[in-house]
Write a protein that binds this DNA or RNA. Structure first.
Length: 724
DNA sequence: CTGGGCATCT
DNA sequence: AGATGCC
């Protein structure tokens, strides 16, 4: 009895203290200054938000890949002429992020540098971290490769009901502006539980992935992020609502506020606003006239530490891109070769992802003496289906071969190659990624995921305390490790990683040797350039003798600009006729260095030991999932990135059923079983339509994604379940 | 001598 | 398509 009374009191206390954070976005009394710390109307319960920030992430990954680097006092990660990050030993000697290599070596001549331009390993490890966090709670939002937000409100509430002894425990880690030991956890039970969860998750990341990092615990994303860096490295800090003013006031300038970047800070400075207080006391009206309503209000809120933006589950990336920068690129031939190289790598990544891109985009950066690091331009176009299909199907070389002309076409829309030009960057990007039917055996399907992911470990979780008869909604957010992530991540661990960093691959691509057959080996660059010039001069007259033999969708104009080897290839029967012949594919395979069986001897592969760690890990923490009944009836739980596309029905194959991809699996799982069955049988009678969703307005998509993350409300059922 | 890659908003 | 922001 006494216990429950006390718990109620704690609840009230925390509710009162949460008033600060739950101010309506509209900032009713925009009174400046002191009003900051006055409570305003509370509309919703306070959240518990975690922010994880891995320590010098790239450096940690490299030290894991090559443990010898641990002995070395310093390790920097170099991209082009920049040290993008370095370990803490190096930082103690004065190195900072984004320092030039020249400056860095001047400060410490013994600095060991590791090339970090290929992000493959960082990307893989980054997704493993997100995956691990998601296995505890699906509300995880990525920010870059090394940061994750997590909304653990429901996990905290669940623990709150199961933690009888709130008096006898304390905070884990630091408490901002307090001596941690002096803070009574019973005054802030939710924050205290949040600090415990953060500690457990950091420990899990360390045990299973070998990475250390910081965490911040607070009531919104802004504060969690700000506070996570209070103690570095490998520590965590909780921000109590009562210290909200302290941390926001500690920021040295507006630029430090996440969400206020270079440009915005400049414009603010033009208004005479530099400090947090400047903006707090600046009239909202004047701000609106400068930035518009939404932006102005958002900034006003940020500087009083109000941030009601939800933790939006990130899921699979919406675009994949690959880019390279350089001092100067001034010839069409170089552009073509670089584009081909980038595409080769990008297509392979796309293939591992398993989805099919519907849109291609080419981005360039032109050199200009003044505004050097701006002025990116891009053009995009749809990818013809017959080309796009080759990417998930594994015909990588075919795909690249046909995408290169597409890219060159876009290039010529931006650059007049008759006039001199000077590029400093090329980026190729796939977007509008479509999940394809899983019938294709391979990466896109569930089968490969299972063959890799199934392990006896799962039985552990179901034995734990799951008598929680009441809240299905809370438990439905709980997932098992095994079903947590898109197979892309797992795929990366089970296949040898092939990247463009292989010198042989790079050279081959550069010289076009991978494309050539023996008969064209003798082609010289001079001939090629002549051909390019010729093509430029009469680009309007493309009535060449060979163009009528071109494969469909190859622009004759672009064809002229291709290296002769590629022209020959395109004219081979394999491409002129629709079906690839064995001769072409075999000749391509024999000369392509980065097919799996020809690849270079790899350096010790990190993914293997990690996988073992995950599978064999002993979880000393709370079981990640306390209830399994809901999970068992979740059809899409096996396909970890739920696809919620709008428009026509497309279907995803699950282990034992098909259903529309625009169905939110979380919502679906919460329906009564008989309703599930009814819907299933209804869907089964419809035919899969693989059309592009057309009849929707752009801009709806992001909203859908956000709504989907919080799915589970009755009114969202209609939205997701009615195909209309 | 300012990287590479993602997202959102307009 | 571009601008901006985050790491």
């Amino acid at each position: 009895m006494g216990d429950s009374e006390e718990e109620l009191e704690e609840d009230d206390t925390e509710w009162r203290s949460s008033f600060l954070d739950s101010a309506a976005p509209a900032v009713p009394a925009a009174a400046p200054g002191p009003s900051l710390c006055k409570p305003s109307a509370a509309t919703s319960a306070q959240r518990v938000i975690l922010h994880f920030d891995l320590d010098c992430f790239y450096a940690q990954v490299e030290m894991i890949r090559n443990p010898a680097l641990r002995e070395v006092p310093l390790a920097g990660i170099q991209q082009k002429y920049i040290i993008v990050t370095c370990n803490y030993v190096a930082r103690d000697l004065g190195l900072t992020k984004l320092m030039s290599v020249i400056d860095a070596k001047e400060k410490c001549p013994q600095l060991v540098l590791v090339k970090g331009e290929d992000l493959t390993h960082y990307r893989e490890m980054s997704y493993k971290v997100t995956e691990l966090l998601m296995s505890y709670c699906p509300l995880v939002e990525r920010l870059g490769f090394d940061e994750n937000f997590m909304d653990v409100t429901e996990m905290v509430e669940r623990r709150l009901t199961q933690t009888p002894d709130l008096n006898n425990f304390s905070f884990t880690g630091h408490v901002y502006n307090h001596i941690s030991a002096n803070v009574k956890a019973s005054d802030h039970p939710r924050m205290a539980l949040g600090s415990h969860i953060a500690a457990e998750l950091r420990e899990a990341i360390h045990n299973k992935l070998g990475l250390t990092g910081c965490a911040g615990i607070a009531t919104n994303k802004l504060l969690a992020k700000l506070v996570s860096g209070a103690f570095k490295p490998n520590q965590q800090t909780t921000l109590l609502p009562e210290n909200l003013c302290d941390i926001i006031g500690s920021l040295s300038s507006l630029r430090k506020v996440p969400g206020i970047g270079h440009q915005t800070a400049k414009r603010l400075q033009a208004l005479g606003l530099v400090s947090i207080q400047d903006l707090q006391s600046f009239p909202l009206k004047d701000l609106v006239s400068e930035f518009g309503g939404p932006s102005a209000q958002r900034m006003k809120n940020l500087v009083i530490a109000v941030d009601d933006s939800p933790v939006t589950p990130t899921g699979a990336p919406q675009s994949l891109s690959d880019e390279d920068s350089f001092k100067k690129m001034a010839s069409t031939k170089d552009v073509l070769q670089k584009t081909q190289q980038l595409l080769s790598s990008l297509v392979e990544r796309m293939n591992k992802d398993g989805r099919q891109p519907l849109t291609f985009r080419l981005t360039i950066r032109r050199y200009s003496p003044t505004n050097k690091w701006f002025s990116r331009e891009s053009k995009q176009c749809p990818i013809p289906n017959h080309i796009g299909q080759k990417i998930p199907s594994g015909s990588r070389d075919d795909a690249v071969l046909q995408l290169v002309p597409l890219a060159m076409k876009l290039f010529h829309k931006m650059v007049d190659s008759n006039a001199p030009f000077h590029l400093t960057l090329i980026n190729v990007c796939f977007s509008n990624l479509q999940t394809r039917g899983a019938a294709v055996s391979g990466k896109g399907s569930i089968t490969s995921f299972f063959s890799h992911g199934t392990s006896p470990r799962k039985t552990q979780t179901s034995s734990s305390q799951s008598q929680n008869g009441s809240s299905q909604a809370a438990d439905s957010h709980c997932m098992d490790h095994q079903f947590s992530m898109h197979n892309m991540v797992t795929q990366h661990t089970s296949q040898m990683t092939v990247t463009t960093e292989s010198p042989s691959s790079y050279e081959a691509a550069l010289h076009g040797s991978r494309w050539k057959q023996s008969s064209v080996v003798a082609v010289k660059d001079t001939r090629l350039q002549t051909a390019c010039r010729a093509a430029r001069s009469d680009s309007d007259e493309t009535s060449n003798t060979v163009t009528h033999r071109l494969p469909p969708n190859v622009d004759p104009e672009v064809f002229e600009l291709l290296p002769e080897e590629i022209q020959v290839e395109l004219l081979s029967p394999a491409y002129v006729n629709s079906s690839p012949s064995t001769s072409t594919s075999s000749s391509a395979q024999a000369t392509v260095p980065d097919v799996p069986h020809i690849q270079k001897a790899p350096s010790p592969e990190p993914s293997q030991p990690f996988t073992e760690n995950i599978e064999g890990a002993v979880n000393e923490l709370d079981p990640p999932c306390r209830a399994t009944t809901v999970n068992n009836q979740r059809p899409l739980a096996t396909s970890a990135f739920p696809v919620r596309e709008e428009g026509r029905l497309s279907f995803v194959e699950s282990s034992d059923c098909k259903f529309p991809v625009n169905v939110d699996p979380e919502v679906f799982s919460e329906l009564p079983p008989d309703v599930q069955r009814e819907l299933m049988s209804e869907w089964k009678q419809q035919k899969p339509v693989l059309k592009v969703p057309s009849s929707r307005k752009p801009g709806r998509k992001t909203k859908d994604r956000k709504a989907a993350g919080k799915g589970g409300q009755a009114n969202s059922l209609f939205k997701y379940f009615k195909p209309t």
